[in-house]
């Protein structure tokens, strides 16, 4: 399929690997530096696993590391609520627009991609007054922050779901279901959702990764999440902060590898026109 070998416009095997190894190698340096940093022994030099052992054996995250645990718990809660908001609000709307209001598809796309144009730091200027009202109604807990995060994940979630939705003939499926007497909820949950489960899974994974990495909004609205806690702890103990940063990056990497294997990610992404 890829054309005759001699006209293949790509690089030769050797060129490819030189570029990949050089650039990839450079990009591994900071990661290696983080690992090296956490393995350093105090002033006497040399390396050991003491800092990792200290963190995961014995007392674990207590004392001065407590903020990290609080931040992690908060971020996980936020990730769950954000995914729920995304699934409950965005998915039915996308399906409905696809089936009943095709004319609105471009509007929905515009709205969903809008958060790329509005920097989080700008959004937070306007979110501050909104959240002072929200805190009065829903309490000052951390979970309402998920409403703001739902906006942040919109572009990513939209693209993942839309790529899957385009590949499935939802309109015909829903008409078939309807002619068999299915109601709207049945169509959504038992006909459409099972067909776009890959897109939904990819969208959920990306949302989790976005929420776990989010700093801007939490920091400026004075809420504690994983990233704000890491910044605070890093001032006192950079080693612990870096260990957690490594773990968080590894977890996000695993989530995205997961999307790759689901197959909805990289391959279908190119069909999305943005």
């Amino acid at each position: 399929m890829s054309g005759l070998p001699q006209v293949h416009p790509g690089p030769t095997r050797l060129t490819r690997w030189i570029i990949v190894v050089v650039i990839g190698g450079l990009f591994l340096v900071p990661i290696a530096a983080m690992i090296e940093f956490t393995l350093r022994r105090g002033l006497e030099g040399g390396y050991d696993l003491a800092r990792w052992a200290e963190l995961f054996g014995g007392d674990g995250l207590t004392g001065e590391y407590k903020p990290v645990l609080t931040g992690l718990t908060n971020s996980l809660l936020l990730a769950v609520v954000t995914v729920l908001i995304m699934l409950v609000l965005l998915v039915p709307t996308m399906v409905l627009v696809r089936i009943r209001f095709p004319a609105l598809e471009r509007v929905l796309e515009f709205v969903c991609l809008l958060p790329i144009t509005i920097p989080a730091i700008v959004l937070v200027v306007g979110l501050a007054p909104v959240y002072s009202v929200v805190a009065r109604i829903l309490g000052s807990g951390v979970w309402p922050l998920a409403f703001a995060y739902g906006i942040l994940v919109l572009p990513y979630a939209y693209r993942a779901i839309q790529a899957n939705l385009r590949a499935v003939d939802v309109v015909t499926l829903s008409e078939a279901a309807r002619s068999l007497g299915a109601g709207w909820l049945t169509i959504l949950l038992r006909v459409v959702v099972p067909n776009i489960r890959r897109g939904l899974l990819a969208a959920s994974f990306i949302s989790v990764a976005v929420v776990l990495g989010e700093y801007t909004i939490a920091a400026l609205l004075n809420r504690v999440n994983l990233q704000t806690a890491l910044v605070i702890v890093s001032k006192a103990d950079p080693f612990v902060a870096i260990i957690f940063a490594l773990l968080a990056l590894a977890f996000a990497f695993a989530l995205l590898i997961g999307i790759g294997f689901i197959g909805a990610g990289p391959r279908t992404q190119r069909k999305v026109r943005s």
Partner: peptide, 18 residues
Amino acid sequence: DAASGVLAQFGGVMLAFA
């Protein structure tokens, strides 16, 4: 794809540490 996604979109604070 996965590594690019992590670094491009979810790094933030952690890249500063790196």
